[in-house]
Amino acid sequence: MIDSLKQGNKTTLFWLFSLLAVWMAQATWIDQLNPYYLSILIYAGINIILAVSLNLVNGFTGQFSMGHAGFMSVGGYFSAFLTTTYLAKNPELMSEFQSFLVFLGSLLAGGTIAALVGYGVGLPSLRLKGDYLAIVTLGFGEIIRVVVLNLDVVGGARGLPNIPGFSNFGWVYSGVMICIFVIWRIIHSSYGRGFLAVREDEIAAEAMGINTTQVKVRAFVIGSFFAGIAGGLFAHTLRYLNPQTFDFNRSFEIIIMVVLGGMGSITGSVVAAVFLTTLRELLRPLQEWTHIDFRMVIYSLMLIFTMLLRPQGLLGTRELFQRRKQLEPGVTP
């Protein structure tokens, strides 16, 4: 007991240090970086949050959701709507502390609204299993997009321009650290075993006294919350939102990251998100030489080969830097 507490404190300390390191980097050398590499780094960070949060639903709880981009758009649109129309009409007149508070508040609000929508979607649909759940979440993702498309207050099809560019490396990687920390701690807690139990065998889990629907909905709500945060960060990085960005292709991209990294591996999702984000950019020079867009062909071929050679994903259910083999399915600690 005391031993595990010590261990917990140490991991918390580790994450706090990482958070501090991120902001130290932001304050010192990160702005000297080439803006192109910096923007890849930032988009990789946003993709990490999306992939890790979807992994909680798809990988750890075993519920195949295909509507993650929908929750991302809810969070993104809500936080951007708050900052553009109410809180930060003149971002250049605001002090740094003010913009810090405004951005933090709107991010959390966006995440909360996304979580609420996740709850509303999850409660009826998570009683379904497998393919049915996938189709329902896919449908809900599209509904969210079409609703946004017809909302004139956020620009509808015209999109939402002039979003203040509050987001930066520090914000995005704080989001990454917090997201990974929260999901890591949930999965490693005794409560989190419930998530894994639902994935392994729902009937057995129910027989052991786990409220499976509740567990599934909670995973869904937490996943949606972080998707909303990622959406808010995305909106304030790109400074323009368009409903087109959040179509089901975006959901598939996130699913691909989760599957490629390994369903049920947080570090796997991180590696896959970084890998796929940079791969798209690494293949750009090829396009400049050949004038033909080979990127998508190579990207797809790599996915096909990974799935053929390593169907469980790059890391399977294991983690990088794993200390104890306590998470293998069926192995009790």
Partner: peptide, 11 residues
């Protein structure tokens, strides 16, 4: 895609 256009312009 808008986000791709932004990255391409940055590059």
């Amino acid at each position: 895609k808008p986000e791709e256009a932004a990255t391409a312009a940055t590059k």
